[in-house]
Structure formats: C-alpha cells, structure tokens
Design a protein around this nucleic acid. Structure first.
Lengths: 332, 332
DNA sequence: ATGCATTGTGCAAACGGTTACACAAACACA
DNA sequence: TGTGTTTGTGTAACCGTTTGCACAATGCAT
C-alpha cells in the first residue's frame, strides 16, 4: 500500500534505489532509447514497487511538447456538439493526448481563456465554436502547431479546416417538402453572429431559389430548445408559413412543440419542420425529425487526421470537405 | 502583428530587452512580490509589446501547482451530467483553473487514463462518474489535494464527498402515484454496477415499503434513451405494471415513448413514468416529465466549495449533503 | 553623522525530467 | 592482437520559471 500524502518519488531518487543514474531512469521510460533490456526491466520493477511515474510537467518543459490539446467549444451540454466532443475526446485519449476544455459564452472571457490555455503550451487547438474569430485564435496560439478549425475557412498558414457541404442534401429536402405542396418557408437561425449558421441558411435559400421560391419569414434564436419554441410561436403568429427550416435539431424540436402545442398544427400535414445536425435525439421516437445531418464519425475522423498530420510535422495546413445527407423523419 | 511560427519569447530574453534580470520579470507577473511599481509597469509594457506570457508549464514545475483539474466523467454527451459539467467548467475557469476531461467507458482504460492524468500533477480531481472505484482513484491520485467525489462515500483522508438525499422526494412522488390508484411498480435501473443507481433505487423501494408495496418487476439499462425504450418494451410485455420508475430522465423518456408507441399506453392514465435528475429536457413541452430532481447549481456550488476548501489548505476532507426535490410533470 | 529598517534588484539554486556527448566494455573481423 | 563498430551507461547542460539569500540604495529616527 502506497503511503498517503507523500511527495511523489522523483527520477533521481528512483535512480539511487535502482543503483543507476537518473538518465538511465529516463531511458527506461522512453520506448526507443539505447538501454539494456535487463536494466530496463529492473528499473520498471523498482518503479512499480515505489509507484514512480515520470512527471509529465517536467517532461513537457524539456520536450517542448505537452501532449495537451485545447478544445474550444460553445457549450458542453448542447447535444449538437456533445456527440462530437465525446468522440473526439476518446480518440485523443487513445493517442495519449489530454483534452483541455475551453468553454465560454462571453467573447472577452473567451479570449482570456484562450490566452490562459496558450500558456500551457498546448500542442494542438481544435476550435469547435464558430463564435471565435479565427484571427484571434491564430494570434493567441501562434506558437502551437497549426490550429484546426471546424468550419470557418481562413487563409492562413496556421489554420487547417474542415469544410461542410450540405447543399445537395438541402436540395433534396426542399424538393420533398415542395413536392408535398408546401410553399411558404421560414428560416429559424441560430445565433446571429454565427458563421456556420449563415452557411447553413445559404444552402436552403439557394435550394429555394432554384425553384423560384424565397423565405416568407425569418427569426433568430440561440440554438436552444427554448429559443426554438419561443421564436416559432412569434413567427407563426406573425406570418403564414407552412414550413420552418431550423438552424439545428434542438431548435427544431422546440419549434415542433410550439406549433403543436400553441398553434395546434401538426407535422408534417399542417407544417413541415426541418432540423440540422443529425443528433441522436432527432431519431428518438418522440421526435423523428427530418434533418440535414452530418456524419459525426466522419467529422471526427477528419479532425483526428488533421491532428496526426500536424504531429507528423507534415505541416502545411490542409482542408477536408465533408458532405451532409438528409435524414428522413416524420416532421417533413 | 506578431511573427508566426516563432518560438515564444522567454523570461530571460525579455529580461535582456527590459534591462532587468529574469527574476524581476517573474516578480512583475506575481501579484504580491516585492518589486518597484515603475519597474513592473515598464516590464508589462515590454511584455505586451513582444507578446510575452509566462510559461505555465515551467511555472507549474517550480510551484508544485499546476492549476489543472481532472474531471472524471462517464460521458460528455449524456445530458444528465452535461449540465453539471458545463457549470463546473465555467466555475473553474473563473478561478483560472483548467479542466482536463477524462472520459472513458471501459474500466481498464479508465485506470490508464487516470494514471496518465496523474502524471500531469493535477491539483484537484473531481469524480463525476460512479463507475470508478474510489479506492482506485485514491491510489492513483494520492499525491494530489483531496479528491472530490460526487456520491460514493469512502472513509479516507483524501476523499471529500457530496451526499445526495432523495428519500423525501421519492416519498412524495410515490405518494402521488399511489394516490392516483397505481399499485404495480417497476424499477428500471441504469448500469448494474452503478453505486448511485443502487442508492436511487433504495429511495423508491423504501418509499414503497412504507406503504406495504414492493416492486413487481425490474430491469437494467445503461442510462440511454435506447436502453430505456428497449427495456420498457420487454418489461411491459413481461409483467403487468402501471408505474415505472427510471434511473434517469433520458431512460424515462425512452420508456414513455415505448409505452405509447409499442403498447399504446399513455401517461399518466394508463401508466405513470418517473425520471430522475431533473435535466432541462425533462421540462420540455414534449416530455414534461415527473422527475426526482437535483438542483444542479447547488450541486456545483458544493463542488466548488470543496475545491476552494482544499485550495485554502483547510485540508481535512469534508462532506456536504444535498436534498432532492420532486418536479411535477404530466407523466405521473 | 550613525545605526537600522525597508525596499528593490540580481545571483544562483532549485523544480524533475531529457539528451548530446564522452567513454568503457563487449563484440566483430582481419 | 589490434582496429573498428556497437552497446550501455554516466556526466552535465538545458527546458523556463520561482524564490531564498545577499546586498546596495533609500528613508527615517536618533
């Protein structure tokens, strides 16, 4: 049983116990370094006995490599991001990389936070949030390996990006809805300043335009269920629409509830409702949402690929494009 | 504009630029250290100019204080934890503490992961997951400040804990359901090995026992919507019950959907369904769940209080007890 | 003028590892 | 037996800070 409250043993102390120098201890813990296998085994045995583990902080200082990854996210609870976050965290951990979560609603706080994380010499930065200016991120993390950003492209030697293309899927969805006889569309955006939201909106607006249609009404929420509910109520009172395209799935669920509960309109007959993201909850029986969805696994695969590319010093930022697909539910 | 790809400037280099020693640089960045205010101002100005920020890794090595906090969680996406995680992350960040997320389903991986995090000399450990043995956690993190564990009590000088008491609320809920004429109860557990799940189950079993009732049937899920749905179907085919108490809200939503969709039974008339956690989604119009809920803010307040207690070296582990309340919805 | 706190700064030794370099021992080959 | 390569280990410098100690300069009371 290890003693409590005792300082962790250092390599120098272990060296004395094993009758070697601290350099040899270090080598015993570095996979491919010149060391006799007998010595290594003996050291590892003694290390286990005394509970020795190399201090990652000291190691990082020397290596210039912290194995820390900053994850900049909008929110942790939000299901649209959570599934991806979860996946990414697992993939990082498999690679012995530790994720530091930076999560902050307020703009200035976010900058402060990124500055703080940058002092920890993180090896990589993944920006999931489209609320942070890439230029700010680059300025703050200019000493790390390239930054990976989910969406917003920025022409900079430090930024690798993942582009999302949902235009084809939006086209299919609009096609179906128009085929069902709907004509009066509304778009319910996420946050106003969101880059990705503008992009998503464009896919649908373009798809409508192809058919000579436009938006009859528009509103802005904040990606939350409550905002979806509230804005849908206002929207439906304000304008006569028979289809609402929402900025994400959670707002779509809110809008669906609002239509049903407050206006007595049911999907898909009275009104069509479309989400975006393709989160698991969208497929739940009680929701069964029609949604423009992105393959989360493919997305995270892409992020991991970019990280590995950076790790391998195959620098030069890179860009990967992913295509969305439609998930057909009973709401449109 | 800062130059790209350039090594971060060090305190020694900045010292040269400012015409002082690196010790003085350090003092300029330490709030209460003996330094002339003129010198400090000059240094901060030069630092800003060259984009200097003290290297937190080096600082941690020296200080024996990393300002890193390990958060051991079951999953990131799971809404029951996500709300708390989100809150805690914010509170930590306010205190300039950076959270490292450890998230892992598999038992052995989890131990590996905790060992990895422990090499980063985290200052605090918060265990949100009831899937990890506290004894393992203590063995691994025996050099950090006391561990904070959400639920499972362990009599150890390194463990502070937060106890949850839901017995009174369970009593109220059972009272209401029995008053509505229901008699045949089932309990749908979360994971089998979960400590907290056993506790929650006990609250309800005790409340039933008080009224001379027992469980007619029982099943085990994994806290997910899908498992709630599937297990409820099996359960309702297997046994005649008119009330299902679920281990968390998400399973309750799954069970409600299963009852309605597969069996054609509606809440609360045909069957009563109760959740636990009190997540935001439970209050959504489409769910409106009756649930035994915990005040997340109070919970995180308690966690933060324990962390500050440890930080202030008012050591000695401490224990805080929180009481759950009932949230009344239309499902029971 | 003298002594004595007080204040501001530099020097150098930590903190706990890694690694370039040096060197001895072991082995190869003629 | 000597030369050359390989292998395993130790020495010491370094990674970028913090901080105890020493010391000069300043202020203040005699």
């Amino acid at each position: 049983m290890l003693e409590m409250n005792k300082r962790r043993i250092t390599s120098k102390e272990l060296a004395k116990l094993a009758g070697v120098s601290s350099a040899t201890i270090s080598r015993a813990f570095s996979p491919d370094s010149r060391i006799g296998s007998a010595t290594r085994d003996r050291i590892l045995a003694v290390a286990r006995e005394y509970g020795y583990q190399p201090n990652a902080i000291a190691r990082s200082l020397n290596n210039q490599r912290s194995r820390l990854v900053a994850l900049v996210v909008n929110a942790i609870g939000n299901p649209c991001e959570a599934e991806e976050q979860q996946l990414l965290v697992h993939r990082l951990q498999e690679r012995q990389l530790l994720p530091i979560i930076l999560c902050c609603a307020d703009h200035d706080d976010r900058l402060q936070l990124m500055r703080l994380a940058s002092t920890y010499q993180v090896d990589h930065v993944v920006v999931f949030s489209d609320m942070v200016s890439m230029q700010d991120a680059v300025d703050i993390f200019h000493t790390t390996k390239p930054i990976i950003v989910s969406f917003e492209p920025l022409d900079n030697e430090k930024v690798s990006s993942i582009r999302i293309d949902g235009s084809a899927a939006a086209d299919e969805i609009i096609d179906k809805i128009v085929g069902d006889g709907k004509k009066r569309f509304a778009y319910l955006s996420g946050t106003k300043s969101s880059w990705i939201d503008k992009l998503r909106r464009k896919w649908f607006v373009d798809a409508l335009a192809k058919r000579g249609l436009g938006l009859q009404a528009e509103a802005f929420g904040d990606y939350s269920y409550d905002s979806g509910f509230k804005e849908a109520v206002l929207l439906l009172h304000r304008a006569k629409v028979d289809a609402i395209i929402c900025g994400n799935d959670v707002m779509a669920i809110g809008a669906r509830d609002a239509a049903r509960r407050v206006l007595g309109k049911n999907t898909p007959d009275d009104i069509a409702i479309v989400g975006q993201d393709g989160i698991a909850m969208a497929a739940w029986d009680c929701n069964d949402l029609t949604t423009l969805s992105l393959d989360h696994v493919a997305f995270i695969d892409a992020v991991v690929e970019l990280i590995e590319r950076h790790d391998a010093e195959l620098e030069g930022p890179h860009s990967i494009t992913l295509t969305c697909t439609a998930r057909w539910g009973s709401t449109a």
